[in-house]
Simulated scan of single mutants.
Amino acid sequence: MTQSLEHVYKKLEAMQVDLEDLRNTYKGVSKRYMVALTSLNTLTIHSSDAAKRAAKSTEQSRVAAMNAMIAAREASGNPALLMVVESAVTASVAAALAAVESAAAAAAAAAAASAAVAHQAEESLLKASNEAAVASRMAAEAAAEAVKLSNQAREIVDGIHKKS
């Protein structure tokens, strides 16, 4: 009987050691999980911020393309200002290209935010990802408008060249 109790105590002692090992492992995993979650949260917030900034940049490029197109249209009535018109068209094209690049950056940032959310669906991450997606959509719309304005400016120059 004493021998079997001794055997039970040894088993209990081994189980206690195993349980302590499991606790320590859990603590380590939990700590690493919290670090990863914090990093993921930070990445999502930064991605969302980058998408919003890219959308603002795209909007500014759209405004630049619009102003360049207006300058080309206003100067198109005077053949002596052909160089001004062509410079305005060049500026409009550059603004449209900048808008497209900014829109692509916004889309990439929104994708990064969405990927982060896919790994850890937390309310703050979902909100940041949604904001990034909205910013990306706005950037794409502004880029499309900038390209349209650039094309209008190009048509003005083409019309001047046909008259000449």
Rank of each mutant, 00 (worst) to 15 (best):
T42W: 01
A111S: 07
R62F: 02
A140Q: 14
L5T: 13
E13I: 07
A143M: 03
L5W: 08
V147A: 15
L125I: 01
A109V: 12
A98G: 15
S124T: 15
K11V: 05
V84A: 07
L12Y: 13
A75K: 07
S87T: 12
E6F: 08
A144M: 04
V147D: 06
A139L: 05
E145C: 08
K31R: 13
A139M: 02
S39I: 03
T38M: 11
S47T: 01
E101V: 10
A135Y: 05
L81C: 08
S87D: 15
G28Y: 05
L149R: 10
V157E: 11
T25F: 01
R23P: 08
S136N: 07
A106H: 05
I70P: 00
V89L: 02
S129N: 01
S76P: 06
D49K: 11
V89F: 05
D49I: 06
G159Q: 01
Q152S: 10
S124H: 10
N41M: 12
Q120C: 09
R23L: 09
V17I: 05
R154Y: 04
L82C: 04
N130K: 15
V157P: 00
L82F: 06
A110F: 02
L82D: 01
A111T: 00
S4H: 12
A99N: 10
E122R: 04
S164W: 04
S92W: 11
M69F: 05
R23E: 06
A132C: 01
I156C: 03
